[in-house]
Amino acid sequence: MTEMSELNQAAHTEFHPRWYRKRLSTWWWLGEWHYLVFILRELSSLSVAWFVGLTLFQLRAFMRGPDSYGRFTDTLQSPIMIALNLIAFCFIMLHAITWFNLAPRAMPVRVGGKRVPEFLVAAPNYVLWIAVSAFVAWLLLRTS
């Protein structure tokens, strides 16, 4: 893309005028489902950054003691934080699901010359995901 536009500028002379290129609308991705999912998936990185930022604040509050940590958890109960975390959670889920489903495309598995169906290649990702999630929940919930 960038190489092409450099080429265009280099080739721009009196007898070779600049090629006509239709200006793409900023909202080109709204028209088709695949493009929309692509853009939303790209934007999911913002939710990742949001989550890590939140976790760093949580760690800081934890480090400062129970009162500070209590104020932090109170903040998380405010409607605006609930709303933001709900949005972030949806984006994170989109990232997780698209990421797990991408594995069979990135690494097609063949058994006996036949390609293993994609859902079978993606399945271990989901098994690992559920196991790790259950373990984390168990650690946090067991003696609270």
Partner: peptide
């Protein structure tokens, strides 16, 4: 890492604990 760890972490700390769906872990437990 983001796909495997963040969903459960964000679900628990961002939604389930603040909304009271699950009991908040005590400071001592943390």
């Amino acid at each position: 890492v983001a796909a495997i760890l963040i969903p459960i972490q964000l679900f628990l700390f961002g939604l389930a604990f603040p909304l009271g769906w699950l009991p908040q872990p005590s400071y001592d437990h943390l």
